[in-house]
Design a protein around this nucleic acid. Structure first.
Lengths: 193, 193, 193, 193
DNA sequence: AATGAATGAGGGTTCATTCAT
DNA sequence: AATGAATGAACCCTCATTCAT
């Protein structure tokens, strides 16, 4: 039911989706849908909440398993994000595009959650800068770049493609480290001499 | 009139936009709108066509002014894209999000145009790889990353911000070169020795 | 439960009242309501029946306590009606306005009951006319006037007002006697001479 | 169209009336109805406005044609009201019952208009009291009684009945004068002596 | 060149009611 | 005795579009 809504929203956008089609797709009666959700907007809220929770859950787990090292943490975040975009392209696309369809009362909470995602990356990158591991002259833009490239995966990735998910994760981790101009400690020492 | 449509489409999405609101926003009668455009879909087509034309025009000009050097050409493409996203955020957002709202008959042409944008970047990067100027191990993913980070600008850039457009162009050019792991000829020579 | 229904019907009218709101107001589940009443219409019937019974009960009691004198009986009827309208404005308003919402099968009985109320007044006034106590040239219209003015109380009376219920009863009794042009026996004798 | 709405509202009440039935009754398409009226509520407002205007227009005319004499003016008001209730029972019933269906934004204006009707009667009666022509001990209640009895006509009067409209007007004028205990000047003089 | 009037389809939502439990 | 789940019909309203003028 919520899955059906997710797909419809994702394919046509919130505004263009008819709640009747959602019901039809879910194989439920229109009224049944209204029995469980107060309306179209509440469906969207439920979907967005779920999407954000799932994503942040994955991020938290990844961060917990990573060490303190900023590079490791950035790797963890990127890997988690890439995996999430690959495994949940529908959830991803809704979270990434339908925030604007929220009515004011739910928008605030959503924006705060969104900001939380931003902050996660920002902190890691800032710590990497402080440690001298990330050398990018534009940390904020680098952060945006990393996030944007990971998010875009949801739009183009198809499981039929030749690249395995794990291979893709590896690539994006590598790309992200390149973007922030990561220099491992050993190299830095070598350079210093 | 078309400008009004652009703004409505951009704010609410094609599906959620009412043609009446477009007319109201444009200060025209509903019938007048139908006199100039056959319908909602044709408005979208006109807007998308115009958006793509403007963007590709800017790319072509930039490429023409750049030399043969792949690095220079990548710089030109990135600069043109960033400028376009900054100066035309509305046009950009529609082109980047409302392709899915096209009915089948117009979709094919649109997809081809989209592909043309992809191809532009791909060719430049491939030439840079061939020349040994770009060292990224993942040229396709690097290309996607560059495009994604440039496109994202349309979503977050606000003219009130502290960064001037030209400063931003410079940053993104720099980031893009980082992503493809650009090594200028002189450096390469130095390294070789 | 029935009280909740009464209030909802009275505030918004039968047609505009939702059975869900009744249940909510009564603090009962929707199904519970259906367990005790077969449906919306039956609720209305119960309410109307109760309203009519209560009113006619009050009238009967009043008439029984009054003597045979038509003036006394008219006083009794008016006093009973006024009191009922004051004390039961909600019951009153439903009985007075929602008869039209009855479906045909219940309408007949309701109309007969309504007629009974009419008849009560009519008989008393006719006897007063026969006795020469009531001199109004238009007994039927006088009857309608008396009933209408008493009924209207349910619409405007507010307990916060300055007039006490008993004072109001007295006034309306007086007004009713005026309407029928009551002349006590003694006066009549005096006039005859 | 508005006439159809009037009849539906009058027969079933605003809340129970379907806008589709109004359209059907008017022989118009549903959309056509919405082309001329913004919605159900606006239809009601238009109907109430029209009803009040028509009634007050009749009152004004009647008062203008009457002299300064309070008795004459009361006669004029009663006659106008009775005629209006007879000739426009549908308009009357809506104005008299559907005020409660107004949404807050229109309610204020309506209440003010309603009050204007009240005031008209009140002033005339007060002047009659001041002149010593009306002797009723309860002028406010007498006013309410007169208004209530006139208004009730809309509910019961049927043109097939035996009483002609003009005969009814005469009766109600007479009843009203009885209610306020009108004593013509000549009589009062006679009594004084 | 331009518009007011009109339409049928479909929008989201609520309804009174039933049924399995 | 009492309820949560479910339904189909109907609700008010807005939609994109057409057409006579």
């Amino acid at each position: 039911m919520i899955e059906a809504a997710r797909e419809e929203f994702s394919e046509q956008g919130y505004g263009a989706t008819s709640i009747r089609n959602i019901a039809k797709r879910a194989g439920v009666s229109l009224s049944a849908l209204y029995y469980y959700y107060k309306g179209k907007q509440e469906l969207l809220v439920a979907i967005l909440d779920d999407g954000l929770d799932a994503y942040f859950g994955a991020c938290d787990t990844a961060l917990r398993e990573a060490g303190d090292d900023p590079a490791e943490q950035l790797e963890a975040l990127v890997a988690a994000t890439v995996r999430f975009r690959i495994e949940h392209p529908v959830k991803s696309s809704i979270v990434l595009t339908e925030g604007r369809s929220l009515e004011p009362e739910h928008l605030a909470r959503y924006r705060k959650n969104e900001e939380r995602g931003t902050q996660q990356f920002r902190e890691v990158i800032e710590r990497g800068m402080a440690d001298g591991m990330f050398l990018t002259p534009y940390p904020e833009d680098a952060r945006r770049a990393v996030i944007a490239m990971c998010n875009a995966i949801a739009q183009w990735y198809r499981p039929e493609g030749e690249v395995t998910p794990e291979e893709l994760v590896e690539r994006y981790v590598s790309l992200a480290l390149t973007v922030v101009e990561y220099r491992p400690r050993s190299v830095r020492k070598a350079v210093r001499r």
